[in-house]
Computed example of a mutant assay.
Amino acid sequence: MPHALVLQSDFGYEDGAVSAMKGVAHSVSRLLPIYDNTHEIPVFDIWAGSYRLWQTVMYWPAETIFVSVVDPGVGSERRSIVAKTKDNQYIVTPDNGTLTHLSQKVGIVSVREIDETKHRLPNSGISHTFHGRDIYAYTGAKLASSIMLFEDVGPEVNLEDVELLPFQEATLSEEEITGMIDILDIRFGNLWTNISYELFMKLNIQYMDKLVVKIFHGSRLIYENNVSYGKSFGAIHVGEPVLYINSLHNLAIAINQGSFAKAYDIGTGTNWKIQIGKLASPE
């Protein structure tokens, strides 16, 4: 029985790149169930690709094969790899940091370098700019259809040699939590932080309590306000900001029926810090 093949990339849908990847996979086996995670990752944004994998992988069954292609170094000396998670799922991807969140949050137990002399779409060797089609979709389809096993991918890679992006955990100091803006809930403009529900609860917060929220880009203060903690967006009036727990059980901030990211021109990544603290008690 074939396993699910899940594709993600920064290719978008304006040309035939995604369709070509699916065509290659179907040429390996017409029985493969092929699904899309997203193909709207911002171009070259490896961090976002890493996050979207973590956001999704945990909800798919064991033996699912994921192909993730955000590959600004395509055609360079960076490796092509397949990683096995502790939950027995497989990620086919460039070795460029795409595994960062899965390594930190899920666990990678084994990585193999793809032997491109064996696992490359036939007659594709002249081009070196579309490895998503020629190597990753092709290799992923062979794994998903059980034409080959993980052990046949190629030589093992030392886990310590796998490329990872700088990663920071949120921290609690006295009555203030410092974290980062990990990613955007893009369509709605909400900010998703790396502050876990468990860490946030150490502030002893109740629904509708107000907290001081500060957002920095580097050392520059971008936003400061007192924001209510609500169960969902409807807890506050339209146009007001709200802190809430998102679907990954992390703290997020939104504007009810508005885009927080657009309103304050907020970005994501390690340079975007957020501080959450209790209001000072009146003297």
Rank of each mutant, 00 (worst) to 15 (best):
W192L: 15
W192V: 15
W192R: 14
T193A: 12
N194G: 06
N194C: 08
N194T: 06
I195Y: 05
I195W: 06
Y197H: 14
E198W: 06
E198D: 13
E198Y: 05
E198A: 12
E198G: 05
L199P: 11
L199K: 01
L199I: 09
L199E: 02
L199V: 05
L199S: 03
L199Q: 00
F200E: 04
F200S: 05
F200K: 09
F200T: 10
F200A: 00
M201Y: 07
K202G: 02
K202I: 08
K202C: 04
L203I: 08
L203T: 05
L203W: 02
L203F: 04
N204D: 12
N204Y: 05
N204G: 13
I205P: 04
Q206C: 11
Q206Y: 10
Q206L: 13
Q206P: 10
Q206T: 12
Q206D: 13
Y207F: 14
Y207E: 12
Y207M: 08
Y207S: 06
M208Q: 14
M208D: 13
D209E: 10
D209R: 09
D209T: 03
K210Q: 11
K210T: 12
K210A: 11
K210W: 05
K210M: 10
K210P: 04
K210F: 07
K210G: 10
L211G: 11
L211F: 08
L211V: 13
V212L: 13
V212C: 06
V213D: 09
V213T: 14
K214L: 07
I215E: 02
F216W: 06
F216M: 03
F216S: 00
G218P: 05
G218H: 02
G218S: 01
S219M: 06
S219K: 08
S219F: 03
L221H: 00
L221C: 04
L221P: 02
I222S: 03
I222K: 03
Y223F: 15
Y223W: 14
Y223M: 06
Y223T: 06
Y223C: 03
E224A: 05
E224N: 07
N225G: 03
N225L: 05
N226E: 15
N226D: 15
N226I: 15
N226Q: 15
V227K: 02
V227T: 04
S228Q: 14
S228F: 14
S228L: 15
